[in-house]
Design a protein around this nucleic acid. Structure first.
Lengths: 346, 346
DNA sequence: GCGTGAAAAGACAGCGCTGTCAATTTGCGC
DNA sequence: GCGCAAATTGACAGCGCTGTCTTTTCACGC
């Protein structure tokens, strides 16, 4: 209804529709003079390409897919915002796709998804981005994608990516605790299958090693990225003969669980025990005390990944980019108390 | 590339493409026998309509818009899930649209959004759904929409809607506190411009009235739906000469703020003060103690609204539907202590 | 069995754009 | 100014579906 079409522009600029199409899509083989004329016509008419027609006609729908497997609402919203902002800016559409990353045939399901919606490419977030074998397969299907991964440095190699240095951030958090004087620091690990979790554990270990403190297995507790595991894990730590004076939770939800465990045990945070998280989710800001954590800007990270993906779809070359989460010290961490002053459990 | 088209199905079912189209779109001038045949063919071939072609060809894009103005990530995800589930089921696409509901020209911006993407209709969530004048305008543009509103009973009248009885739920929560023996109950109000907030306040007032307890203005504090207002509001209540023994926060985030305020003041929840929220967000489950609250299933509510919208787009008649949030009693509420036992503030 | 109106099914023409390939123009060396 | 390859530009045929209009079939009363 009344909307301006390619043909209108073509008539106005006195060229063929195809030439207008070429200009709109930034193809090379148009003379500057012609391009000018077309651009002027586009502006005069306030023309906007019809996504539907573009997608139906062309090889792909000028739409990218954001693929995730993550229960964390805040994280998802952040990622969505980032992707949307890049897509709006570059005239692409966005489709959001939750998947189960642990099942077989992931690559094939993703291909199905891409084909059905004629997606131009995929942004793969962790932990989907860690299934390298499936990714290889995806690549053989010639589906463009950019992954977001946890890595201390540019992994280079096979696939384009945006990398986040979880290890360094975990190192910083642990060092912060060490500098406060903590020696027995518990670690509540997140999803076994998440590489990010392993990286954070490694940062923790490295920091302890730097301070010459031997690792103790009873202080490192397995679990998932969920509140209940944080709660139970922290309880186990408190029950040790020599409980830790600080606990580092692999993400904010785990740390919130640890915080609740402390409070339910009558322990005062941070006086009796320090607790740190990872993520800077609302959890960490809206607890009492607010949690020391590492800020990870999911929105910015995904926006960069999305821009990279679109650049690649357009045939441009790209370089991998890295991000460093930032240490955020808040009220949940403090120096340990001398032993005798520590409060009794109720 | 190998994707199954309408024609393939038509051939398989030995009918015309148009008939398949009719079946897919739930039009009702198809004989049951024929419909069966077509459905079987669709299943055999695993046919899925191509959104792009549908949108290009038809008067609208078989895609609905979910419009919200809400900072609460958890809520948004819930709504998205509900809408997506209905859309997937009914072969519609979904576009998500955050807006600022307080600005002028809302209807015109929504129209722009609808026209650009050729949306078939809109699901309007609170508080967007409360701008009645703008809605009237939207209706004159002949844009189909369904609103989600806060109301104690079917508002009937002008626009189709799904209504949620916030008042009754707030009444239930307040009654729960009264039955525990609380008399001085504070109320932390959410967004002034949200009708839901007014409804919850009214439920609170009604319950007090039912128990013959006079309202006290110093116990009702204005604020927004955010943590900090909950924190500050609760602090003000604690500073009263006669502080309340229970606080009802207008949503979970406010209640979380009140909880933090209590903890930061050295008050023990629920022994020194009871706290209740509204929403059943992760906040309420992941705090210590977990919050008594009212469960509001954003996903289910929005799913219903989406189905209603699509039915209307298809020209079917619909009836408004109501939902009642459910009281969830958890650890943050308990009987008040006799006065002398109440703990001193530090 | 026939006539009738309504219900069901089909034919056909695009929707706005891009891929393909053919036609035209340009630039350049001689 | 000519010839030729390369650079530009254009013509045309769909992409997969639905709206419109037409044809066919059905149900029913006599």
């Amino acid at each position: 209804m009344g909307s301006v079409t390619l043909d209108d522009v073509a008539r106005q600029a006195d060229v063929s529709a195809k030439t207008v199409s070429r200009v709109v899509n930034g193809e090379h083989s148009v003379r500057p003079i012609t391009r000018q004329r077309v651009l002027r016509a586009i502006e005069q008419l306030d023309y906007r390409p019809n996504m539907l027609a573009r997608g139906l006609s062309g090889a792909h729908a000028y739409t990218i897919g954001l693929v995730y497997d993550n229960p964390n609402a805040y994280y998802i919203i952040g990622m969505q915002e980032g992707a949307l902002s890049a897509c709006d800016d570059l005239n692409f559409g966005l489709q959001v796709r939750p998947v189960n990353s642990r099942t077989d045939g992931l690559a094939d399901r993703l291909r199905g998804f891409v084909q059905r919606s004629r997606l131009s490419g995929l942004v793969l977030t962790t932990p989907v981005s860690e299934r390298v074998a499936e990714l290889r397969r995806l690549a053989t299907y010639r589906i463009p994608f950019v992954r977001i991964v946890s890595a201390a440095r540019d992994p280079g190699g096979e696939f384009p990516c945006v990398y986040v240095d979880d290890r360094d951030a975990a190192h910083a958090i642990t060092t912060h605790l060490l500098q406060l004087g903590h020696v027995r620091i518990g670690f509540l690990r997140g999803g076994k299958h998440h590489h990010a979790s392993a990286e954070r554990l490694r940062g923790y270990k490295d920091a302890l090693r730097d301070y010459g403190i031997p690792l103790r297995n009873d202080l490192m507790i397995e679990g998932d990225y969920v509140f209940d595991d944080g709660f139970r894990g922290a309880r186990r730590l408190f029950d040790l003969a020599e409980p830790p004076t600080a606990i580092f939770g692999c993400n904010d939800e785990i740390a919130a669980g640890a915080l609740a465990a402390a409070q339910s045990t009558g322990l005062h945070v941070p006086y009796d025990v320090s607790i740190a998280g990872f993520e800077d989710s609302p959890f960490s800001r809206h607890s009492w005390p607010p949690l020391t954590t590492a800020r990870q800007r999911a929105d910015i990270i995904v926006e960069r990944a999305t821009r990279m993906l679109i650049a690649r779809i357009r045939g441009e070359a790209t370089e991998n980019e890295g991000f460093n989460p930032e240490l955020l010290v808040r009220g949940s961490t403090a120096p340990p108390r001398p032993r005798e002053q520590r409060r009794k459990r109720r």
